[in-house]
Computed example of a mutant assay.
Amino acid sequence: MTLPEVLLWEQLRGQKLGAKFRRQHPVGPYVADFCCMAARLIVEIDGEAHDRGTAPARDAAREARLAAQGFEVVRVTAKDVLENMDGVVALLRLKADSPFHHASGMVPLPASGEDVQ
């Protein structure tokens, strides 16, 4: 696991958000960075490589296939995990509490210490 994955896992493990997350969890032919089966929520941490070459097209195809299986994919940047962990955790808590009530994909995070609406 990368450093951002390790740091986020520390926040997710042990049902700290009120939902059980699994790390490196297989979902069909894919391995999700983190998955909450109860909320049908997949969390992917994207580094800079996800913006290059064919990665965006592969990510979009993967998201479409997972959405067809009933999952919402939330993508957060490694930079956000490192610089705004509070915002990432607030977003994931909201998503785990009320799945499918928000758009999927890359979403803006609240600033550190800011409430999520």
Rank of each mutant, 00 (worst) to 15 (best):
N84W: 01
G47V: 15
A61F: 06
V73H: 09
F71G: 13
A78G: 11
F71E: 12
A57N: 03
Q69R: 14
A78N: 00
T54F: 15
R58K: 15
V74G: 06
R65V: 11
D59G: 14
V81D: 07
D51A: 15
G70L: 09
R58H: 07
V81A: 06
D59M: 10
R58N: 14
A67S: 12
A68F: 13
A68K: 06
V76W: 10
E72Y: 04
A55L: 00
D80T: 00
E83G: 03
D80I: 00
A57Y: 07
D80L: 02
E63L: 07
H50A: 08
G53M: 13
E72C: 09
L66Y: 15
G70M: 07
A61M: 15
G70A: 07
P56I: 03
G47F: 09
E63D: 15
F71D: 13
H50I: 13
R75G: 06
D51C: 08
D59N: 08
A49R: 02
A55N: 05
T77N: 01
R52E: 03
A64S: 12
T54W: 07
V81Y: 06
H50G: 12
A78P: 00
E63K: 09
G70T: 09
D59C: 14
K79V: 08
L66F: 14
V73D: 08
A67M: 14
A49E: 00
G70P: 07
R65W: 13
D80P: 00
K79E: 10
G70F: 11
A68N: 03
E83V: 01
G70S: 08
R52Q: 13
R62F: 14
E48V: 00
A78T: 01
T54Q: 15
A57V: 15
N84C: 03
A55C: 03
E48W: 00
A78I: 01
D51K: 11
N84F: 04
R65G: 08
R62A: 12
G53W: 07
E63I: 10
D51N: 15
E72H: 06
A78M: 04
A78E: 12
A68Y: 11
G70R: 02
E48K: 00
E63T: 13
R52L: 03
T77P: 03
F71S: 12
V81H: 04
P56G: 04
A61N: 14
D59F: 04
A78F: 00
R52P: 05
F71T: 12
E83Q: 05
E63Y: 03
G47A: 15
P56R: 00
E48H: 05
A57S: 07
V74A: 11
E83N: 06
V73W: 09
A49K: 02
A67F: 11
H50L: 02
V81N: 07
V73I: 05
P56T: 03
E83L: 02
N84T: 01
Q69W: 09
G47H: 04
P56W: 01
A57C: 08
D51H: 13
A55D: 02
G47Y: 02
V81K: 02
A67V: 12
L82K: 02
D59H: 14
E63P: 01
A64M: 13
A57D: 04
A55Q: 14
T54Y: 14
E63M: 05
A60L: 15
K79A: 10
T54C: 01
D80S: 05
A61D: 12
R58A: 10
